[in-house]
Design a binder for these strands. Structure first.
Ligand SMILES: Nc1ccn([C@H]2C[C@H](O)[C@@H](COP(=O)(O)OP(=O)(O)OP(=O)(O)O)O2)c(=O)n1
Ligand SMILES: [Mg+2]
Length: 1176
DNA sequence: ATCCTCCCCTAC
DNA sequence: TAAGGTAGGGGAGGAT
C-alpha cells in the first residue's frame, strides 16, 4: 500500500500519529483572566520599525518523507546531542550556562515524553517505509481537467496507488507537474498554455508497464480540424477534442527523475526561451489564433515550458509541495552570494540593520501594519461615536454589543442584536465589500498614464534584471497582466515566462497609504459601520444610506420604482473614490458579508454588483468554495477528494454532519450555510487586539550561535517597540521557529527565502511572579532566547524566527516611575486636556512608590511604563486627562532616568499644571445620525474634522499627530463606584485610592473584601492581590528579612495552585512579599510531589527579576544569593544530596532539579549582565 | 467537560 | 539578486 493510500484510508492512524506531537513541554500559562482590554488606541506607525513575519512553507500534502519530521517537529529534539555538539564547537565560550542547548535540568519530564514520541514515530515510519520510494508516479503532482476516460476517480486512484500526488484543482497555491485531460475549452487552453498537458493514457500505460513512460509521448493535442472549426466561443460546453498523438519525444528527458520538470530550473528555462519564446506578441495568449499548444508543446527539440503553477519552487506554498527528495539542489545564485562573507554580513540576518531594511521593503509587513492602524482608526471612531451620542444625541441607540443596534437616520430602526425588542421592523440590511482593483498597480499608474492598459506588475526587481529566473514576488498585477495568467504573489520570473514584455513598476508605499486614507475617509461618509479588511479593502454597512436613497426617491414622480438603490449607492461611492484617488474600486453589495464578497468578485474590475437574496441560490450553485473567505486550498482539496467537487451547489447537498466530520465543525457549517446563502459573520469593527508579534522568515542565515542570539534580541526590541507604540503590555510569549527541512537544500529556490521548513513554536509566561505584564525588550529577549536554546537547533539551520506576545493588557500601573515615553509622547503632542485632573477623591499625591523593591525597577525599566489612567468623571467626557505636574511625586521624578526626567520637565513647562483645553468635538466618522430626522448627512465640518484626523494619523513618519488620536484613550474604562469607602480607609488597607477609583465596581468590591479581611492580620504581607489592579502603598523602610526559614502562613501555596485556574480571580504574589515565603509555601505545600514546571518557571522568573529588575542590583543579587542558599538548605534537610550509588528519591530529585533550573536561570542572567555567577 | 499548547490555515 | 508579515479562527489531543 502506498503511503498516499494510507493517508487516504487510515485517518485513525494518522490521528494517532498526531499524538506523537506532545504538546508543550514547557511552559506555562499564567492565567485565565480575560483581559478586558480596552481598544487599542495608539497608532502604530507603520514605519519601518516593525516586525516581520512570514508564511509557512510547510508541505500541505504529506508525502511519505515529510510527514514524520514535518508534522512532528519535536522529534528533532531527539537529535539534541548532535546539535549540542555542533554548538559546542562554536568558538564561544561560555561555561555551562552558555551552551546552546537545554539546561541540563528541567528536561526530566520531557525526556520520557520524547522517548515515547520517538517510539511512535519509528513505528509509523516502519509502516510507511515501503511506499516512500515505491511508486512509479512518486514526485508527480497531477491535476485532472474535466471529464476523462478513464474516469477522474479511477485516474486518481491510479495516481495515488503509484505514489503520485493528485490535485483536485488548480489555484495559485497549487504546485503540479502535469495536467491530464481529454478535452479543453479554449479558456483552459490559454491557461494551460505552458504546462505539461497529457492524456490519461500516459498514466494508464505507465501503470500497465510498471514504469513511468515519457510524458512527451502522450502530449495532449487538439485535433486540428476541431480547432479550426468553430472552436473557441462555441457552445456553452464547447470544448476542443483531443487527439492522442504520441510524439517522438526525446527519451532523454525521461531519463531524468520523474519530476525533472519541477526543478527544470533556470538553465533549462533559458534554453527553452531562446527556442520557444512563450509569447512575444505582447498580447494575451487568447488573442492569437494559433493553437497555443502548438507552440508550447510541439516541435521536436523544444523543451517544454515550465508549468505555470509548478515549477518555480520559489513561489511560496509551491516549495512545500515539492517532494522533498526533489528539492535537493541548492540555489546556485544564492550559493554564490552566500560564499562571500562581506555579502552575508551586508544582506542577511547577521547585518546590524537587517531588520530595519527588511521591514522598510517588505510589502507584507506594510500590509499588516496598515491593517492594524486602520482597525485602530475605526475603533476610535466608535469611541467618538459613543461618547458623542451621550453628549449631543437625544435618545440615541448606542451600538450595544458592537456594531448592531445602530439607529438609522432614515426612519426605520435596524435592530439586530435585540430583535425581540420590538416593534421595530427588521429591515433588510445592506453590506458592501469595497476593494481597489489591482491596488498597488493602480496607484502606481496614476503617475504613469502611459502604462495604463498594459500588462504591469509591482515588484522589487526593476528593469530586466534576473530575466525569467527572478524570484522577486509580484505584489499586484494589472488586469491586462492577468490575462496572461499572471497572479498576485507569483514570482517575476514566472510572470516573464508568461508574458516576456511585462512591465514592472516599483513599490510606492507612501502613496498606497495616502490613497487608502482617502478611500476610508470616503467610506466613512456612507457607513453605518465599517470594518477595515486591508489597506485597499473594507466592509461597510450602508443600510441607512440605501434607505436614504429610497426615501428620497419616494418623492419623485416615479416613486423610485424599479431602481436598485444599493447599486446606486455603490456607484456613488465608486465615483467619489475615483475622484479622490484616480483609481477604480469595485463594490459588491448584498444582504450579508459573504454574499457581498462574492458580489465583488463578479463586480471586478471597475464595477459594482448587487447580489439579491432571491438570486443567491442560483448564483451560489456554481461558486467554488475557494471563493469563500476563509476557505482555501487545504479545505478545498479535502472536499474534492471526499465529495468529488468543490462547488457550493454540490457540497450543499451533503449532510452537514459529513462536511463537519471532514472539514471541522466550523468550516463544515460555514460551507453548508453558504450554499444556502446564509452567513452569520458579523461586521467586526472594533475587536481588541489579542497579540502583537514580530517575525522574520526571510534572509535568516546564521553561522554562529552568537549571531542568532544577537538577532533574537534585536527582534525582541522590535516587538517591544511595537508594544509600546500601542501602549500594551504582555504576559505571555510564543516563540516561532522555522528550521530548514532536512531534505531541503541549503539555499532554497527563492532567493534568501526560507524554503521548505519544519516549524516549531513554544510558549512561556513572561510576567514576573507578581504577575506584572511587560513590554521590556530585555525580558522578552531573554525569554525568547532561552526558548530557542531549549530547542537545541543548529543555528545554521534556522530559517525563520518570530516572537509573539499575548495576554495583553493596558498598563494600569500607578507608579509614576512607570510613566514612560509613550505617555510622554502623548502629553507632548496632545492638546491639553479638557480640565484638570480630578479623580476620585484623592487629589493629591496619587502615586506612591513602594520603596521596597519595586520603585527602582520601574525607574530602570521605563518600558514598563504605564500611563496613569485617570478616572473619567463623567461618562461623556472622552478625553484623557493627564496628571498635572504637581501630581508627580518629585521624589519619583528624581529617580527616573535622566532622559525621561528631562522629557517630563519639558512637557510640563515650568512645573506648572498643565492647562486644560477644550476637548475635541465629538465627531464620529460614521455618518450615522442617531435620531431619526436629525442630520441625515454629516455636516461638512464633521467630515473635515474626520478626514484631517485620520490623515494625520497615517501621515508619514515624524508626524506629531499621534497625540490627537489619543484623545479618547482609555475612555472606555470609566467606572463609577457605588461603594462606600474612604480614601483614608483605602490607604490604611494599603490600597492606592487613585487606582481603586479606576477599577470596575466588581473588582473594587473584591479588593475591599480581600484587603479588609487581610488587614486583620498584622503581618499582612499583602502577599496576594488582584493582578495589577491594586497597588499597595509602600511601607517606608520595611526591609527584607533574613535567611533561614522564615515563617509565614502560607496562603501563598494557594496562589500557586490557583494560578491559571479558570474563573477564580488570579491571585498573585506581591512583589514586595518575600520570595522566601513563597518558596517555602510552595515547597511545604507540595513536597510530596514533584514541582510543576510552571511553578518552577515562575519562581525562576521572579528570581531573575530580583536580580536584574531594576532596583538596586546590589540588593537584588545579594537577596537572590541568600535565597538560593536558604532554599538549598531546605532541600538538604529533606533530601540530603545523595551519595554516588545511593538510592534516588524520585520526588527529591525533582525538587533538586527545580532548584538547579532556577539556579541556572539566575546564573545565566547574572553572567550576561554582571559576568559571574551566584555562589550558592 | 474544559483548558491549554502547538500547531495548521487563511487573508491581504 | 530580495525584502516569504502577521493576526486570528480553528482543531487535535493531552492535562486538569
Ligand atoms: N499576495 C499578495 C496579495 C496582495 N498584495 C497586496 C498588493 C495588492 O495590490 C494589495 C491588495 O490585494 P488584493 O487581493 O485586493 O489584490 P489587488 O488589489 O492587487 O487586485 P484585485 O483586488 O483587483 O483582485 O495587497 C500583496 O502584496 N501580495
Ligand atoms: Mg484589491
Amino acid at each position: 500500500m502506498s503511503f498516499s493510500e494510507y493517508l487516504d484510508d487510515d485517518d485513525d492512524f494518522l490521528a494517532a500519529l498526531g499524538t506523537v506531537n506532545l504538546p508543550g513541554d514547557a511552559a506555562a500559562a499564567t492565567d485565565n483572566n480575560e483581559d478586558p482590554l480596552s481598544a487599542v488606541i495608539k497608532t502604530e506607525t507603520p514605519r519601518e520599525s516593525g516586525v516581520a513575519g512570514k508564511k509557512r512553507e510547510r508541505p500541505l500534502s504529506m508525502t511519505a518523507e515529510e510527514v514524520p519530521d514535518a508534522k512532528y517537529p519535536r522529534l528533532m529534539e531527539e537529535d539534541r546531542s548532535v546539535d549540542v555538539d555542533l554548538s559546542v564547537e562554536q568558538p564561544k565560550t561560555s561555561g555551562e550556562f552558555e551552551v546552546y542547548g537545554p539546561s541540563k535540568f528541567g528536561e526530566f519530564g520531557d525526556y520520557f515524553r520524547r522517548r515515547r514520541a520517538k517510539l511512535q514515530i519509528q513505528n509509523s515510519q516502519l509502516g510507511g517505509e515501503g511506499e516512500k520510494t515505491g511508486g512509479i508516479f512518486s514526485g508527480l503532482a497531477i491535476y485532472i481537467n474535466g471529464r476523462t476516460e478513464p474516469s477522474v476517480q479511477d485516474l486518481r486512484k491510479l495516481i495515488i496507488q503509484h505514489g503520485g500526488e493528485y490535485h483536485a484543482f488548480l489555484d495559485r497555491h497549487s504546485m503540479i507537474t502535469h495536467i491530464i485531460t481529454c478535452a479543453l475549452t479554449p479558456a483552459k487552453m490559454k491557461e494551460f498554455k505552458q504546462m505539461k498537458v497529457v492524456t490519461p493514457q500516459w498514466l494508464v500505460q505507465s501503470a500497465k508497464e510498471g514504469k513511468l513512460l515519457p510524458w512527451r509521448n502522450f502530449i495532449f493535442r487538439v485535433a486540428p480540424e476541431t480547432f479550426d472549426g468553430a472552436p473557441a466561443s462555441t457552445s456553452a460546453q464547447g470544448s476542443i477534442q483531443a487527439t492522442l498523438e504520441p510524439s517522438k519525444a526525446d527519451s532523454v528527458e525521461r531519463n531524468t527523475p520523474p519530476d525533472s520538470g519541477l526543478y527544470a530550473g533556470k538553465n533549462r528555462t533559458k534554453i527553452q526561451n531562446s527556442h520557444n519564446p512563450p509569447n512575444l506578441s505582447g498580447k494575451p495568449p487568447s488573442k492569437p489564433r494559433a493553437n497555443p499548444f502548438q507552440s508550447a508543446f510541439t516541435g521536436p527539440k523544444k523543451l517544454p515550458v515550465e508549468p505555470l503553477y509548478t515549477t518555480d519552487a520559489a513561489t511560496k506554498e509551491a516549495a512545500d509541495r515539492i517532494p522533498s527528495y526533489a528539492a535537493h539542489k541548492s540555489n546556485p545564485h544564492a550559493e554564490r552570494a552566500m560564499k562571500s562573507s562581506e555579502w552575508r554580513a551586508a544582506h542577511t540576518s547577521v547585518s546590524d540593520n537587517f531588520i530595519d531594511g527588511f521591514y522598510k521593503n517588505s510589502r507584507l509587513h506594510h500590509l499588516s501594519t496598515w491593517k492594524a492602524e486602520l482597525q485602530n482608526i475605526v475603533a476610535q471612531a466608535h469611541e467618538r461615536l459613543d461618547s458623542g451620542e451621550n453628549t449631543d444625541g437625544g435618545d440615541s441607540t448606542s451600538r450595544t454589543g458592537g456594531v448592531e443596534g445602530v439607529s438609522m437616520h432614515g426612519h426605520e430602526l435596524v435592530v439586530t442584536s435585540r430583535p425581540e425588542k420590538g416593534k421595530e421592523v427588521q429591515q433588510d440590511r445592506y453590506f458592501m465589500h469595497c476593494d481597489f482593483d489591482s491596488f498597488f498597480v493602480a496607484a502606481g499608474l496614476v503617475d504613469r498614464p502611459e502604462l495604463k492598459g498594459k500588462a504591469v506588475v509591482v515588484c522589487h526587481s526593476q528593469g530586466g534584471q534576473g530575466g525569467t529566473s527572478s524570484t522577486s514576488e509580484i505584489a499586484s498585477s494589472s488586469y491586462e497582466a492577468r490575462k496572461f495568467g499572471i497572479k498576485n504573489g507569483m514570482s517575476l520570473g514566472q510572470a516573464r515566462k508568461l508574458c516576456p514584455q511585462i512591465q514592472t513598476i516599483p513599490y510606492e508605499f507612501e502613496r498606497y497609504k495616502e490613497y487608502s486614507l482617502k478611500f476610508y475617509s470616503t467610506l466613512f461618509e456612507f457607513a453605518d459601520d465599517l470594518q477595515a479588511v486591508s489597506v485597499d479593502e473594507a466592509l461597510v454597512e450602508v443600510t441607512s444610506e440605501v434607505a436614504k436613497h429610497r426615501k428620497l426617491a419616494r418623492d419623485l414622480p416615479d416613486r423610485g420604482i424599479a431602481r436598485d438603490f444599493a447599486k446606486e449607492v455603490a456607484e456613488a461611492i465608486r465615483d467619489r473614490v475615483r475622484a479622490v484617488t484616480n483609481c477604480e474600486i469595485s463594490i459588491g453589495v448584498s444582504s450579508n458579508i459573504m454574499l457581498a464578497r462574492l458580489a465583488t468578485r463578479k463586480a471586478k474590475p471597475a464595477g459594482s454588483f448587487h447580489l439579491r437574496a432571491e438570486d443567491a441560490e442560483n448564483f451560489l450553485a456554481n461558486v467554488d468554495i475557494t471563493q469563500l473567505h476563509g476557505i482555501g486550498h487545504s479545505v478545498a482539496t479535502k472536499a474534492q477528494e471526499k465529495f468529488g467537487s468543490i462547488k457550493l451547489g454540490e457540497l450543499g447537498q451533503q449532510k452537514m454532519h459529513d462536511l463537519c466530520a471532514l472539514l471541522g465543525k466550523k468550516t463544515g457549517e460555514t460551507i453548508w450555510n453558504a450554499a444556502r446563502g446564509i452567513d452569520s459573520t458579523k461586521l467586526e469593527s472594533d475587536k481588541p487586539r489579542k497579540s502583537v508579534s514580530c517575525e522574520i522568515n526571510f534572509g535568516i542565515r546564521f553561522e554562529t550561535q552568537e549571531q542568532a542570539e544577537k538577532f533574537m534580541y534585536q527582534l525582541a526590541a522590535e516587538v517591544s517597540t511595537k508594544l509600546k507604540k500601542v501602549s500594551l503590555l504582555g504576559r505571555f510569549l510564543t516563540l516561532k521557529i522555522m528550521k530548514r527541512h532536512p531534505s531541503a537544500p541549503i539555499e532554497p529556490p527563492k532567493f534568501l527565502g526560507h524554503g521548505m521548513c519544519e516549524s516549531f513554536s513554544k510558549s512561556i509566561d513572561i510576567a514576573g511572579i507578581d504577575g506584572r505584564a511587560t513590554s521590556d525588550e530585555r525580558i522578552i529577549g531573554e525569554h525568547a532566547w532561552r526558548l530557542l536554546k531549549g530547542f537545541a537547533f543548529d543555528p545554521k539551520e534556522l530559517r525563520g524566527i518570530g516572537i509573539q506576545i499575548l495576554k495583553l493588557e493596558k498598563p494600569s500601573d500607578t507608579s509614576v516611575a512607570s510613566m514612560g515615553q509613550s505617555v510622554l509622547g502623548f502629553v507632548k503632542g496632545q492638546t491639553s486636556p479638557e480640565r484638570p485632573i480630578k479623580r476620585g477623591s484623592s487629589p493629591k499625591k496619587p502615586i506612591i512608590i513602594d520603596d521596597d523593591t519595586d520603585d527602582g525597577e520601574s525607574a530602570k525599566k521605563p518600558s514598563r511604563a504605564s500611563p496613569i489612567r485617570p478616572k473619567k468623571e463623567s461618562p461623556q467626557k472622552a478625553d484623557i486627562i493627564m496628571p498635572t505636574f504637581s501630581q508627580i511625586d518629585p521624589n519619583v521624578l528624581n529617580e527616573l532616568p535622566p532622559n525621561i526626567r528631562d522629557e517630563i520637565a519639558r512637557d510640563y513647562p515650568k512645573g506648572s499644571t498643565r492647562s486644560p483645553s477644550p476637548s475635541k468635538p465629538k465627531t464620529s466618522p460614521f455618518k450615522k445620525p442617531l435620531s431619526p430626522q436629525k442630520q441625515a448627512t454629516p455636516g461638512p465640518s464633521t467630515k473635515l474634522a474626520v478626514r484631517s484626523r485620520i490623515t494625520a494619523q497615517l501621515a508619514p513618519k515624524g508626524s506629531s499627530s499621534i497625540a490627537a488620536k489619543k484623545s479618547t484613550l482609555f475612555t472606555k474604562r470609566v467606572i463609577k463606584s457605588g461603594l462606600h469607602v474612604t480614601d483614608a480607609e483605602l490607604r490604611k488597607l494599603g490600597i492606592d485610592p487613585t487606582v481603586f477609583a479606576v477599577l470596575p465596581e466588581s473588582d473594587q468590591k473584591e479588593q475591599l473584601s480581600i484587603y479588609r479581611g487581610a488587614s486583620k492580620q498584622p503581618q499582612g504581607t499583602g502577599v496576594f492581590k488582584k493582578r495589577e489592579k491594586v497597588v499597595p502603598i509602600g511601607r517606608p523602610g520595611s526591609k527584607k528579612r533574613v535567611l533561614p526559614p522564615p515563617k509565614a502562613k502560607f496562603a501563598e501555596t494557594q496562589a500557586l495552585v490557583q494560578k491559571g485556574r479558570k474563573g477564580a480571580p488570579e491571585v498573585r504574589f506581591d512583589k514586595v512579599s518575600d520570595i522566601q515565603d513563597v518558596i517555602k509555601g510552595w515547597f511545604e505545600g507540595f513536597a510530596d510531589e514533584c514541582p510543576r514546571q510552571k511553578d518552577i518557571d515562575h519562581i525562576a522568573n521572579f528570581m531573575v527579576e530580583c536580580v536584574t529588575g531594576g532596583s538596586g542590583s546590589h540588593n537584588g543579587l545579594g537577596k537572590a544569593t541568600s535565597t538560593m542558599r536558604w532554599w538549598k538548605i531546605l532541600l538538604e534537610r529533606r533530601w540530603p544530596q545523595r551519595k554516588p550509588g545511593g538510592r534516588p528519591h524520585f520526588v527529591g530529585e525533582a525538587w533538586w532539579d527545580a532548584f538547579g533550573i532556577v539556579k541556572d536561570r539566575v546564573n545565566e542572567v547574572v553572567k550576561s549582565r554582571f559576568g559571574g555567577k551566584l555562589s550558592v
